[in-house]
């Protein structure tokens, strides 16, 4: 959770608590207020950690469609962008395609080579199995190597300091020591990789597909089928594949026309990954 989210949440929770506190002197009514406060807190948590569930539910409930730009509509479920042109509905949807962040993988350098060798062939096989329009997108931005290396070295130094303190304590916790040692190894592997010439990059991957139909339902149903098929086909790459709904759909639609700066990308796409 980033600093901005914490501030927003703290202020809103405070408002809810204040209303609950002032209602406590109203006997039976206060029980209803407590229940409502609990519900509000639950919705707040959902909005913080799973906004892609709660906000599409809200727009679906009130049948609200969104116009993100002239000629385009976002469905009330916030999972497809619709373009109506020459009597045909074009429904576009998105899937996240992020690499699982396996912590242990960074410690197993030797096993990476066969995976890398198999990747081009896997890609071709996947594409050969798809017979409808789709786009695989990766947005990349190289990091400053020196700065990244310094950040890693600082982290390693801090962990080594914590490790030695834990080791010198009267009752060192073996689990904690093992965990810290593992983290030090991971960081060391990353530093070594940079030393070998590998460049650190920030990346965001997503898959986009478009389906057509003579009615809105036909187009959106076909899109759902296509996205499900894409999820099955791209599963061989060991990616986290989830259909995108909510605000990220709107931002991904806008990405077609303009790629924002790195900071905006990092703050916009921080949850559904």
């Amino acid at each position: 959770m980033d600093q901005n989210t914490i501030i927003y949440m703290a202020v809103c929770v405070l408002a809810i608590l204040l209303a609950t506190m002032f209602s406590s002197r109203f006997g039976i009514v206060s029980i209803f207020v407590y229940a409502l406060a609990g519900l509000s807190f639950f919705v707040l948590m959902l909005m913080a950690f799973a906004d892609f569930l709660i906000m599409p539910l809200f727009t679906k409930l009130f049948k609200i469609t969104i116009v993100p730009a002239k000629g385009f509509t976002i469905t009330s479920g916030q999972d497809s962008v619709i373009k109506y042109s020459n009597g045909i509905y074009y429904a576009t949807g998105y899937i996240t395609a992020n690499v699982y962040n396996y912590v242990f993988a960074t410690e197993r350098e030797t096993e990476e080579e066969p995976e890398i060798t198999a990747a081009p062939e896997k890609w071709e096989k996947a594409v050969m199995n798809i017979h409808f329009p789709f786009k695989f997108n990766i947005i990349v931005s190289a990091e400053d190597i020196q700065q990244h290396r310094e950040e890693l070295e600082t982290k390693r130094g801090l962990l080594e300091f914590q490790y030695s303190r834990e080791l010198q304590s009267q009752n060192p916790n073996p689990m904690s020591l093992e965990n810290m040692q593992r983290q030090i190894n991971i960081i060391q592997t990353r530093i070594d990789k940079i030393g070998e010439g590998e460049k650190p990059v920030n990346s965001l991957m997503y898959i986009e597909s478009t389906a057509v139909g003579v009615s809105l339902k036909e187009a959106t149903d076909a899109l759902t089928n296509q996205l499900t098929e894409l999820q099955t086909v791209f599963n061989i790459f060991d990616l986290s594949l989830t259909r995108i709904a909510g605000r990220e759909l709107y931002h991904l639609f806008k990405l077609n026309h303009q790629i924002p700066v790195l900071n905006d990308l990092l703050t916009t796409f921080n949850v559904q990954k």
């Binding site: 798809i130 695989f136 947005i139 990349v140 920030n202 990346s203």
Partner: peptide, 19 residues
């Protein structure tokens, strides 16, 4: 791998299958 690290500002690389 080298291709994805040539730009320090965000660059999108897309592979598109279309009719």
């Amino acid at each position: 791998g080298r291709l994805v690290s040539i730009s320090k500002t965000p660059m999108r690389i897309s592979s598109q299958l279309h009719s």
